[in-house]
Design a protein around this nucleic acid. Structure first.
Lengths: 206, 206
DNA sequence: CCAAATATTGACTCTCGGGTCGAAGTTTGC
DNA sequence: GCAAACTTCGACCCGAGAGTCAATATTTGG
């Protein structure tokens, strides 16, 4: 269901691996474009062209635009979410330090390596229904990471929040829009901007 | 340039007024749809259908989809922005009270009466170039309102912020996503949610 | 080296939706 | 009541882009 159009009795030889690599190449390009432009504005000829291939080839691997987009979002989003979940910052130590590091690293990674991914969260309604479900799931996972640290900090008395919901909502919102905010800044300015943003968001739990 | 397709030597009689009303009706529907779905996903047949009219009629008043969308955004956005700029909360009094009221009222109005408008700010890149300019201008005006109160509060020593930029960015981001957050809540819950959000955002300047 | 499996092509179809326009219907002002 | 102005209709054109497919090229394993 996740990616390939044809389902074969999965022969795991050289061939299958090559096929897998090709799919990864396609997904990488697709993810970039879908993230940049949104669903409607991407056309498959463009995707194909970037791969020096024709549209027909895409349909050899994916049954439809929807399926390609779904798979692309899947990789884009889950790579990124996996990474968030495994951030050492999220692991242990006092909640204050953890949260600060979590915010800072998460945003840095997002802005640098997945500038497109955050778009997914901004206007879910522009994506086909099937994709929205996946997006919601990803969002839930992100939420969970931050919620965990937050509740722990609150329990320990390190954090004082007005409300868990609004705090999470404000944090996610601000982080989602960070790439937009950072767009057009130089390396250093960007670093400083992200530091500032992280510090600002920490005030929400101060 | 703003709205009508044909430019006449503006006869300001009954006819012109009627025409004006019709245009307003069209814009109201268009604004709602464009705000809800974004530019691409709206098709003019849908807009026409909601008005119990055919597409041809729309083209009698507007030269193109772009122009209709531009005019729709114009009304949607400028009504809303005018209102923000004129909020009594923004006028005088101690910055703390003003900012809190400003946030609270602004979000309430946005969620209740302009649920679609905020979408404009979320992903500007999905709109045609001409519209992006207008959107940017609106955003600037919103920014200005909050920036004014913030700087005053800082000068007076009432506010302590990490940085003006990141504070504004975080506030705008959170407010922009409020409708998404409030979607599906009942009247009362919504009120409480918005109160909570406003209080949470006040922590950014505490 | 050859046949079978795999991958790619490019020309094709088809639908959707923006945009046009002359004819028909309605309103206005005299 | 009637001509002129204004408004609406709906059939039509057209380009863009999703999706198809038989033919062709390439790779693989024996």
């Amino acid at each position: 269901m996740t990616e390939v159009a044809q389902e074969s009795p999965e022969p795991v030889g050289r061939v299958a691996r090559k096929r897998g690599r090709r799919i990864q190449q396609i997904l990488a390009v697709a993810a970039e474009l879908f993230g940049e432009r949104g669903y409607d504005a991407v056309n498959l000829d463009d995707v194909a062209e970037r791969l020096d291939v024709t549209k027909g080839s895409l349909y050899y691997y994916f049954a439809s635009k929807d399926e390609l987009a779904a798979a692309a979002i899947e990789t884009l989003g889950s790579d990124w979410t996996d990474r968030l979940e495994r951030l050492p910052a999220g692991a242990e130590g006092p909640p204050t330090a953890r949260l600060r590091a979590l915010i800072r690293e998460h945003v840095a990674i997002a802005v640098r390596e997945y500038p497109a991914a955050l778009r997914l969260f901004l206007v879910p309604s522009t994506w086909p229904d099937a994709l929205r479900v996946r997006i919601t799931e990803l969002r839930r996972r992100h939420d969970h990471v931050f919620r965990t640290v937050l509740t722990e900090g609150i329990d320990r008395g390190e954090f004082r929040v007005v409300g868990l919901g609004s705090t999470l909502q404000a944090m996610h919102a601000a982080m989602s829009q960070a790439p937009l905010w950072c767009a057009g800044l130089g390396e250093d300015e960007q670093e400083r901007a992200l530091d500032e943003l992280a510090d600002t968001l920490m005030k929400l739990v101060a």
